[in-house]
């Protein structure tokens, strides 16, 4: 029989992605065993993050400052905006270090099934940002799904009045991918998006 404090800890941990009740139990046990080395620093980090992290009013990403580090960084190219669905996509692109412009987080995609409409997404602020004469290109980095591409087409329409070039990420064979193992959809889009060499 566990005390209510430990039960509550396990219950909260089990709500985290990747953790079920059993793995939450193991994580809680580790935290309790390594109280000084792990639990207290983690509690401190959680409290600090909860108190300081906020949503960037410019791009919609997370940071401790507003505007966020990317939006405030003058070394980043202000002429290119990369539109992504979620903050996780910003982190993925930053991990790749392949993009030196600025981001715009939509907060989801248009979804017929889930009833997500344009008014639920961070689109008006994107239109405002793209209308800035300093911005010359908008990259639509949406998922290669029906919802993702529907959103991309919708944004393309909305940005028709802004004087910017609009591009999107390529769809096709992933680096290291073997044709034999690719699904039909990826092969179809790869063939459609072929380019001269």
């Amino acid at each position: 029989m566990l005390g209510p404090e430990i039960e509550r800890l396990i219950q909260l941990l089990s709500r985290l992605p990747g953790l079920g009740p059993r793995s939450a139990r193991r994580a809680a046990l580790q935290l309790l065993k390594r109280k000084e080395a792990l639990m207290l620093p983690l509690a401190d980090a959680l409290a600090t993050a909860a108190a300081t992290v906020r949503t960037c009013s410019v791009c919609g990403s997370f940071d401790t400052q507003d505007p966020c580090g990317v939006c405030a960084d003058e070394r980043r190219d202000p002429t290119i905006l990369c539109v992504v669905e979620e903050v996780a996509d910003v982190w993925a692109l930053e991990r790749a270090s392949a993009f030196k412009g600025r981001y715009h987080v939509l907060g989801g995609t248009l979804s017929a099934l889930d009833g997500v409409g344009p008014e639920d997404l961070n689109i008006p602020s994107l239109v405002r940002r793209a209308s800035d004469p300093a911005v010359t290109e908008v990259i639509l980095a949406m998922d290669a799904t029906v919802d993702g591409q529907t959103t991309a087409h919708y944004i393309t329409d909305r940005l028709a009045g802004a004087n910017v070039a609009i591009s999107r990420l390529a769809h096709g064979v992933p680096v290291g991918g073997e044709l034999d193992y690719l699904d039909d959809g990826t092969l179809t889009t790869a063939l459609k998006a072929r380019r001269p060499v």
């Binding site: 329409d157 769809h171 699904d183 889009t189």
Partner: peptide, 13 residues
């Protein structure tokens, strides 16, 4: 998956 119809129309709004 038998036929990936969605993938074929991603570029056509």
């Amino acid at each position: 998956l038998l036929t990936a119809q969605a993938a074929g129309h991603m570029d056509d709004p």
